[in-house]
Design a protein around this nucleic acid. Structure first.
Length: 567
DNA sequence: GTAGGGTTAG
């Protein structure tokens, strides 16, 4: 669509095209509205044009109506398309097809199927070769094998299987449903194939992980386009073979933003932000997907500052964010933990046109508010969810736990169990940490037992670290030490650190020394451990030991980072 | 003689 919009961006070109669309017998007002429609660039201006269509009495014009519906599709407004369609007194098949396409691209599959059945009953003509490709594409996206197969049966009854578009859509459908045999049979028996048919078949192999078949078909095909090359790059990226992906990227005759973005995504997911950044800088025309790849790349690799910087660059260029951009942004903001920033981002996301009811957007929004300490907002967002999931429960629980309301977090966990949700390994980490912060020793032990005995979850080093912290804070240092020593898995620094913190809290010098020695081995450069032990000595007035420790630190070149608190 | 609707890559 954006290509279409760009090519028609000049008013002169738009008028010329509009003139060619409408014969001299049409009214000049229909022509001028058609010109407006063609240069329409936003849903807002589409609405204004729609008002004009109604005012001028052109609502029933079939060509204008069809164009209008395809613009609704381009601006992801299927409901708007339906409302305009419902005002048509006698829609023809072409208009029906345009409406179906708008829904196939943007509505859930059941809605699209219901519309298709309506079309079959109400359209003046039976479905044609233009009807099925978008319907099948919707089935492909949902991987709805049995539904798509029945659509295939209808296609056979209508005698439309030979049409290149229909056949290609069928190949794509069977390929995405991993029915490679059916797809290949349709592909091999085609009389005329185009690059799209070849690419659909290749994508089928790629999505089922058969890189070799995809590659041999790629080599066989007579003519490739940029989509074919990009499909191969994406296939290699998804299989983790960045070297081959890079090879194809370097070899392709011309690249577009998708080529770059797939590879940027690959590098970012592999943690190679440097390579991703180089490609991003080379990319001549960045679209929202390219920005999104960099922002979420930095966010997922624990570089929230860099993510924020890229976002600001995007923001200053007035590029409209999509849901992936804002999820990346919110994730970066969660990591930074700044309430001021979170409030700005919240307002920005709320005011944008992004659908907040989408599960991953809402989850990120709750998580950000939760981690940044805006618990009222996090809780009200959570309450607004009709179907609360594990992720949102965990976000809220973690927020309460982090901000000193461990009891509220535990209450939420009980509520979650009552609702019949199955806690997973991460949920238990969160609730155990909450118990530890709230000093709920017995409850924590119970949940640890529940996790291992009833949910059969093997405790991870994180779970043990929480339990050590729980026991340690409650002063049960011996129990904590026993637990850490009885662990079937190797304890990480977090577990030992929790115990060292507990030793300081309860002034246990000898155990503290033992633990500290262990920690100096595991993470010799963490200043926090030396500081903790030094505090233990200081409380006990053992100043000679304090000064000896400081000498040791100086000897190893370790300096306490000012303002850095060790949790 | 004529408009307008369709399939593949992130």
């Amino acid at each position: 669509m954006s290509v279409l919009l760009r090519s028609f961006s000049s008013t002169a070109a738009a008028t010329a095209v509009a003139a060619s669309i409408f014969s001299s017998s049409s009214s000049s007002s229909a022509l001028s509205v058609a010109a407006l429609l063609i240069s329409c660039r936003s849903l807002r201006s589409l609405e204004q044009i729609h008002a004009r269509i109604i005012r001028k009495g052109l609502e029933q014009h079939p060509v204008l109506a069809t164009r209008f519906l395809s613009f609704c599709a381009a601006f992801s407004a299927p409901a708007y398309a339906s409302s305009a369609f419902d005002r048509l007194s006698a829609p023809n098949l072409i208009v029906w097809n345009a409406l179906l396409t708008a829904h196939a691209r943007h509505s859930p599959l059941p809605t699209t199927v219901a519309l298709f059945n309506l079309l079959r009953r109400r359209s003046p003509l039976p479905p044609d070769a233009f009807t099925f490709p978008s319907l099948l594409s919707s089935c492909s996206h949902s991987v709805a094998l049995s539904l798509g197969s029945s659509v295939h049966a209808t296609i056979l009854r209508c005698g439309l299987e030979a049409d290149v578009f229909v056949r290609t859509a069928l190949i794509d459908f069977y390929g995405k449903c991993r029915e490679l045999g059916a797809a290949r049979k349709l592909f091999d028996s085609m009389r005329h194939r185009n690059e799209v048919s070849w690419t659909a078949m290749i994508v089928g192999y790629l999505s089922s992980g058969d890189l070799a078949s995809a590659r041999s078909l790629f080599d066989e095909m007579p003519k490739r386009n940029v989509v074919t090359w990009n499909a191969m790059i994406d296939g290699y990226v998804k299989s983790g073979d960045l070297v081959s992906a890079r090879h194809f990227f370097d070899k392709m005759p011309e690249r577009n933003a998708v080529s770059y973005t797939s590879l940027i995504d690959g590098y970012a997911k592999a943690g190679d932000l440097a390579s991703a950044r180089v490609l991003f800088e080379q990319l001549p025309e960045r679209d929202v997907f390219s920005w999104s790849a960099m922002i979420s790349g930095y966010a997922q690799n624990g570089q929230p500052g860099a993510a924020l910087k890229i976002f600001l660059e995007m923001y200053n260029q007035n590029i409209k964010p999509d849901e992936f951009v804002v999820v990346g942004l919110m994730s970066a903001c969660s990591q930074l933990g700044s309430l001021t920033l979170a409030k700005w981002v919240d307002l920005y996301v709320t005011r944008s046109s992004i659908d907040l009811s989408k599960a991953h957007v809402l989850a990120a929004l709750i998580d950000m508010n939760s981690k940044c300490g805006n618990m009222e907002r996090a809780a009200s967002l959570f309450e607004s969810m009709p179907n609360k999931d594990l992720i949102s429960y965990c976000s809220l629980m973690q927020g309460y736990s982090l901000h000193g309301a461990g009891d509220k977090a535990v209450g939420l966990f009980r509520q979650m169990l009552e609702e019949g949700l199955m806690p997973d390994s991460i949920t238990f980490t969160v609730v155990l940490a909450a118990c530890s912060r709230a000093g709920l020793v017995e409850e924590g032990r119970q949940y640890f037992d529940l996790m291992t005995n009833e949910h059969l979850i093997v405790p991870s080093p994180d779970h043990y670290a929480c339990m050590v912290d729980l026991l340690g804070r409650a002063g049960r240092l011996t129990d904590a030490y026993e637990l850490i020593r009885s662990m079937p898995v190797e304890p990480h620094a977090g577990a030992w650190g929790a115990l060292l913190g507990a030793c300081r809290l309860h002034g246990d010098i000898s155990l503290g020394e033992t633990i500290a020695r262990k920690l100096f081995e595991i993470e010799p450069t963490n200043a926090g451990n030396y500081v903790l032990l030094s505090n233990i000595y200081a409380v006990a007035d053992r100043w000679a030991d304090v000064s000896e420790l400081r000498t040791m630190m100086r000897g190893k070149g370790i300096r306490k980072v000012p303002g850095y608190t060790w949790i």
